[in-house]
């Protein structure tokens, strides 16, 4: 794995260089500022990295802005970005995830923790590589094969990088897993699920389906404007959200608001057909008193309850129309 570490403290860069060199077959390059890092990523001699480790607070360009700029580069839109965070910077964590960070480690480094994180990222990068290779191979085949290579599984999470406060699915897991005890008191997870998602998935091309997921994410994000939240698309038409601010969302009201905005949005497919997506919401689950796996399970519960609500909505509609037809 080829890693770029960016930090304005030469001691941190030296520690990371020595540490990464001591295990695995990894190569670590360093930069002491955001602009220096971007120089390595652009121009005729642009380099490609598998993973980034970025300090949050740096002069000239902070780690959040650098994350945004790295994410805007097609070659690195999906690369794991780990923020190197001092204890005093916990307040910036939400912003860093919102900008596209995948995970964070706290300085001063715990060597064992750092090693574990790098191993997890290494596995993630290795799992992604075969997929890229297949897509590359498919480029030499005909149009149909290309279309197949671009196929998006209904249940697969999709990375949405251009929507405010939307983070990757694995970043959401990392974020939730590291919430402090005090943060858990004010935290609630909840989810939105697109009704009849399989119908949209069957009818639309992969690109159209992704645009639909992006458009709806944007509408949900706009609806939640003014609230502190992070959101992730978990696949199967479901968006999982977390708020840490103590806000207890009124899910019925939220459903109505999002559906009202969806109604006004006029989402059109490539063939000019107007789509009419609507969402359902599940239960808002508070994280207080939860610990360890229970916290991650709460994300799953929020997702399942929203998907169940979407199915229930369709079932009730069908039952209503079939009422009286059977003997």
């Amino acid at each position: 794995m080829k890693i770029l570490a960016v930090d304005d403290d030469p001691i941190i860069l030296e520690l990371l260089t020595q540490f990464v060199a001591s295990f695995g077959q990894h190569t670590l390059l360093t930069a002491s500022s955001g602009p220096e890092a971007l120089d390595l990523l652009s121009g005729d001699n642009a380099q490609t990295f598998d993973c980034f480790m970025l300090d949050i607070q740096m002069p000239v360009m902070d780690g959040m802005e650098l994350t945004r700029q790295i994410r805007a580069l097609p070659a690195h839109a999906e690369a794991p970005i780990v923020m190197l965070t001092a204890m005093s910077e916990k307040r910036y964590i939400d912003g860093a995830f919102g900008a596209g960070a995948s995970d964070y480690v706290t300085k001063p480094f715990d060597v064992v923790e750092l090693k574990t994180r790098i191993e997890v990222i290494d596995r993630l990068v290795r799992n992604r590589k075969p997929k890229n290779t297949k897509i590359f191979a498919a480029n030499t085949l005909n149009e149909q094969l290309r279309a197949d290579a671009d196929f998006i599984e209904l249940h697969a999470p999709i990375s949405l990088h251009d929507v405010e406060n939307v983070i990757e699915c694995n970043a959401m897991e990392n974020y939730v897993a590291q919430l402090s005890r005090s943060s858990l008191f004010g935290s609630t997870v909840f989810a939105f699920s697109i009704r009849k998602i399989d119908g949209f998935h069957n009818a639309l091309s992969a690109a159209e389906f992704k645009f639909l997921i992006e458009d709806i994410a944007e509408i949900i994000s706009d609806t939640l404007t003014g609230r502190q939240f992070l959101m992730s698309y978990a696949g199967n038409g479901t968006y999982v959200c977390i708020t840490e601010s103590g806000w207890r969302p009124d899910m019925e009201r939220l459903t109505d608001q999002v559906n009202l905005y969806l109604n006004r949005a006029h989402i059109i497919s490539n063939t000019g057909q107007e789509l009419h997506p609507r969402i359902s919401t599940g239960a808002a689950i508070r994280l207080v008193w939860k610990s360890g796996d229970q916290i991650l399970n709460a994300l799953g519960q929020a997702q399942s309850s929203a998907e169940a609500a979407a199915e229930e909505h369709e079932r009730l509609k069908t039952d209503f129309f079939q009422f009286g037809r059977t003997a």
Partner: peptide
């Protein structure tokens, strides 16, 4: 901030 980030390690 710089010292807090490395002294422990």
């Amino acid at each position: 901030h710089l010292i807090a980030g490395t002294a422990g390690t």
